[in-house]
Computed example of a mutant assay.
Amino acid sequence: MTFKTSSLNSLPLLAGLLAGGLTQAQTAPAVAPPASRPSSLGWQACQAIKGNDAGQLACYQQWAQSQLPANTPPASITTAPADPATGQPETPILLLPALNTDAPDGKPIGCRNTQYSELSRFWELQRGTDCDTFSIRGYRPISLALALTNGSNTPQVDEAVRNAGFKPQTLKNAETKIQLSVRTKVAKGLLKSGDADESDQDSLWFGYTQQSYWQLFTPGESRPFRTTDHEPEVIYIYPHQVALPGGWQYRLSGLGLVHQSNGQSNLLSRSWNRVYLMGALEKTLGPESSLRVQGRVWDRLRESSGNDDNPGIENFIGRAELNATWQINKANTLGVTLRHSLHSQARGSTRIDWLMAPAASPTYTGLRYHVQLFSGYGDSLLDYNRRRNVLSLGLSLVDW
């Protein structure tokens, strides 16, 4: 018969037995554990040993060791000092190893392990930050916000529709902005891997972002979604650990392929494809504070003039992007994103983000108050050639 149980549920019992029987175990003669292996029979086999405290203790020790993950440091013994006020003598205490787990089955917490840097956890750059493939993770913030703008492009209609009595929509400058963004790692260790937790590990990701502007405050127009942009992408991440001056570290290089479209046809259609190169570096400022800088440069994949829904879009949205993020502490993050057309007629955009955790839960959830200020071109595909200023106030979920 085989007995199975959760290793973590048994650790409190093990700690109590070891603390209580440690002194006796130091003086009693060593007794071999039962012939049956406790690692296969479970702790019940040790519990069945009666009248032999030292043998039972040895059995528990052998079983506990078999349950620990690989490379777990051994338990250690310390002594609690005597307390003359209460007459409490010195007491031996067993210090069990700290298991970095988020589940009772003892699996490593990987991408949530705070002993690694922000970038390492976000892109799972090292073996110790691995959360395995095909698990859903956050990408860009998942947001619901009130957006106040200085105007937007009005959807165009052809002459036949206008002659049929179509009236242009009456749009408001106050909209609701909704963003969904997720990703999953589809492969790992393709070109770079190792056995140690600190070993670098490359990876291949698929991400999807959807952003909508909803005319919630126009009941007379049936509250339409003014525009929705879809952005699937494939990203390859190659990790580095290159020390740079000033305490900075170059952490990753990347290659991406992205399609962006508003899912419309004819005059309303907006879409383009691009390939990009990226790189990122970071600097640790303290246990809960860091700086991160990420750059991307891209090239549009050419289309024939007859299929180009938005000619010259790269001259408006830009050809390069630089993002700098200051993790002030666990509760506050400040970010600045700059885009530039790299053209004689300089265009692009500036975006500033401030994310603040609720005071009641700054650490244990991904919920953030989110304030965003955008100025420039490309806040949405429909408005790619119109300069807009947008102030967004709302809530976001960051990577969970």
Rank of each mutant, 00 (worst) to 15 (best):
K330P: 05
R347M: 04
I313T: 10
H340K: 14
S349L: 06
L342D: 09
A324N: 03
I317H: 06
A346D: 06
A346F: 03
N332E: 09
S341Y: 04
D309L: 00
S341M: 06
A331K: 13
N323W: 00
R347F: 06
Q327G: 08
L334Y: 15
S344W: 11
Q345L: 13
A324T: 05
F316P: 03
A346N: 12
N315R: 11
R351V: 06
A320V: 07
S305Y: 01
S344C: 01
R319S: 10
Q327K: 10
N307T: 04
A331T: 12
K330N: 14
I328A: 13
G312E: 13
N332Y: 09
T333W: 07
F316W: 14
R351K: 11
S349N: 15
R351M: 10
N307W: 02
D353E: 09
S349H: 14
A320K: 00
G335Q: 08
Q327S: 09
G348K: 08
T325M: 08
G318N: 07
G318F: 07
N307M: 04
R319K: 13
T325D: 04
L334R: 10
E314W: 04
L334D: 01
E321W: 01
L338D: 01
T350A: 09
S305W: 00
A320I: 00
A320T: 11
N329I: 08
R319L: 02
S349E: 09
A320Y: 01
N315V: 01
L338C: 01
T325E: 08
K330S: 13
N310G: 06
G335L: 01
N315C: 04
I313Y: 12
K330C: 02
S349W: 02
S344F: 08
G312D: 12
R351P: 05
T337K: 12
Q345R: 14
N307H: 13
S349D: 08
W326C: 06
A324R: 04
A346M: 03
N315S: 12
G312Q: 11
N310M: 14
T325P: 07
V336N: 03
S344E: 12
E314D: 12
P311M: 05
H343E: 09
P311V: 05
L338A: 11
S341N: 05
T333V: 03
D309K: 04
T337L: 01
N332V: 14
A320H: 05
H343T: 10
K330L: 05
N332P: 02
R351D: 07
T333M: 07
D308P: 00
G306V: 00
S344H: 14
F316V: 05
K330A: 15
G335V: 00
A346E: 05
W326Y: 15
I317W: 06
T350R: 03
I317L: 10
